[in-house]
Amino acid sequence: MDGWSGRIDPSITGDARRWHQVVQPAAANGLAGVAMLGFACDEGIRRNGGRVGAAAGPVALRSMLSNLPVLNETPLYDAGNVACTDGDLEGAQLRYAGQMSQLLDAGHLPVGLGGGHEIAFATYQGLAQHLLHGQKAGHPSRVAIINLDAHFDLRKQAQGSSGTPFLQAIEHAAQHGLALEYFCLGVSASANTRQLFNTADAHSVYYRHDDELTLLSLSQQLEQMQSRLDSVDVIYLSICLDVLPAAMAPGVSAPSARGMPMEVIEPLLAAIAATGKVAVVDVAELSPPFDRDNSTARVAARLIHRVTHAIQRANEV
């Protein structure tokens, strides 16, 4: 498996293992665990007029995840990468969705490693395949997509891109009878046009601006969000790294002028994980060519490490 290597500590009085020592290739009939699936793609960024480089994101993320400590006995799997090398974004998204659906069917918590935010429509399609199969068996689900992002990504374009995935998801859900709510947390007023705000309002998107989500207001904001999530059955959590301040996350397609600090983001993720409803997570927009000392990749790895552990703890309750 590419990208998994790191230090090995002597084990004297306890568990000194790191992720690279326990991760294994995803295989059929394995115990349910956390399964990472890379989307090595920035075709959507190219179509959206951004600076490309995110196709190298999955390798960089694995490198930073490798040395993180093992916190529990849940198996860790690497399901490999789906790449887009020929410009056929739609085909790559369908291949990724098929693998994602299989991981969900097997009981895993899939973690998507991006790649541009076009990963989001691929992740959503995989979740939809999984859930719609369950609905045919008589188990309808209400889904919330929670996107931590400076951008709505609700563009209406002739071709899908990194700017369209959540409108594509909303439209797909409506066409297939899947109840879907979209939450966008960390929206920047200086990075979204009035048209995008109008689109969000037209689709009843629950959103909060970056300057609304502060330490002073966090308790109230968490209460409001949690009350909205009470009626939801399944959560798809997407983390776009440009939701962070540019000084902390320079290695993204579109760095933020303000962003939200980790002091706000981590409690948000903890509250979302504590619902026990998170079925799938992905991290998007890591662009290693623009990173400094792997700082963006390190932050992304920390967030994956924390949120997957929190989700597992919530599922044990």
Rank of each mutant, 00 (worst) to 15 (best):
10 P>N: 13
93 Q>A: 10
237 L>M: 09
159 Q>T: 13
151 H>D: 04
238 S>P: 07
163 G>A: 14
76 L>Q: 08
317 V>P: 00
248 M>A: 14
72 N>D: 15
304 I>N: 01
310 A>N: 13
250 P>Y: 04
296 T>V: 09
231 S>M: 09
248 M>E: 15
106 A>Y: 00
172 H>M: 07
302 R>Y: 06
167 L>F: 03
244 L>Q: 01
23 V>D: 08
176 H>P: 05
248 M>V: 15
158 A>I: 13
5 S>C: 08
160 G>W: 02
233 D>V: 06
108 H>K: 03
70 V>S: 00
291 D>N: 09
117 H>K: 00
5 S>K: 11
30 G>I: 04
100 M>T: 09
120 A>N: 12
250 P>S: 08
206 Y>I: 14
197 F>Q: 01
317 V>T: 12
272 I>V: 15
66 S>H: 01
11 S>W: 11
284 A>D: 10
136 K>F: 04
202 A>V: 01
169 A>F: 09
27 A>K: 11
317 V>Q: 10
262 M>I: 14
303 L>C: 02
126 G>Q: 05
227 S>P: 00
12 I>L: 14
253 S>F: 09
211 D>C: 11
314 A>N: 09
211 D>N: 15
272 I>N: 11
241 L>M: 10
48 N>L: 06
84 C>H: 07
287 S>N: 15
53 G>L: 08
194 R>M: 08
292 R>M: 10
272 I>H: 10
104 L>E: 02
218 L>D: 11
130 H>L: 03
75 P>H: 03
248 M>F: 05
166 F>S: 00
252 V>S: 05
261 P>C: 05
51 R>K: 13
180 L>G: 01
30 G>T: 12
144 A>W: 03
308 T>Y: 06
157 Q>R: 12
3 G>A: 06
254 A>P: 08
83 A>H: 06
228 R>M: 14
104 L>C: 02
31 L>N: 12
158 A>T: 15
184 C>W: 00
13 T>S: 15
44 G>A: 07
142 R>S: 14
70 V>L: 10
112 G>M: 06
46 R>T: 10
268 L>Y: 08
216 L>Y: 10
111 V>Q: 04
80 G>W: 05
131 L>K: 02
281 V>R: 00
